[in-house]
Amino acid sequence: MSALIEFKGFNKFFGEHQVLKDIDLQVRSGEVVVILGPSGCGKSTLLRCLNGLEVAHGGSLTLAGKELLSKATDWRQVRQQVGMVFQSYHLFGHMSVMENLLLGPLKVQKRERFEAQAQAEALLARVGLLDKRDAYPRQLSGGQQQRIAIVRSLCMNPQVMLFDEVTAALDPEMVKEVLQVIQGLARDGMTLLIVTHEMAFARAVADRIVFMEAGRILEQSAPESFFTNPQTARAQQFLEKFSFVESLPKTPHKELS
């Protein structure tokens, strides 16, 4: 089966600094890929190249067979198929929840209001926030804002959703409500690329783990084998750090100084 997304010999530079090196990655339709790796290894950049927020420099990147690294690429078209959710939600503060959700469908896709609104309401209900349809972002908790941001992307009917550390800015008690929404999408068979530091979630939701370091993909494997038996020493060290953090007592006895 041919891949929905395919990076081939893909490179990205920031000035002189090469942040993605010779990336080969295929994502099939309906697959859930979780990207792991230490800070600064290029995870965000990889996602951002996929919807044109960063300009890439070499190799090839295709979406549904179409080359994206060509001058002719209509990124506005691509972005409607590739939804992106950010760490800090970035809802439009001057608009109500419903206005946030309808902006893209009405202005970009020129859809009928009643139809778009019906979809938005159904999705709001699904994430348990239908009663917030007229609220403004500042009146919502972080977890609620993030669920709205996910719905805002879903309202465009994308083929792929990109999640860049979407729970990293949340208070711990709100992480679960957001992860549950993403898990629901995974169950529905949506294609997802997820960057996260929630290891338990990664293990539960992923069809495949992609481990990156310093701009390269070092390892791609099924979650069980990655977490129990990582192939590279780097991945092993990375996982050890997390198990160390998780094994810390929940209420520290001493203040760190």
Binding site: L53, Q77, Q80, M84, F92, G104, K107
Partner: peptide, 15 residues
């Protein structure tokens, strides 16, 4: 304005 406002707008396909 936070940079993310621009990126969020672009991400839903706004021109």
């Amino acid at each position: 304005l936070p940079r993310g406002q621009r990126e969020a707008g672009l991400s839903i396909g706004l021109d």
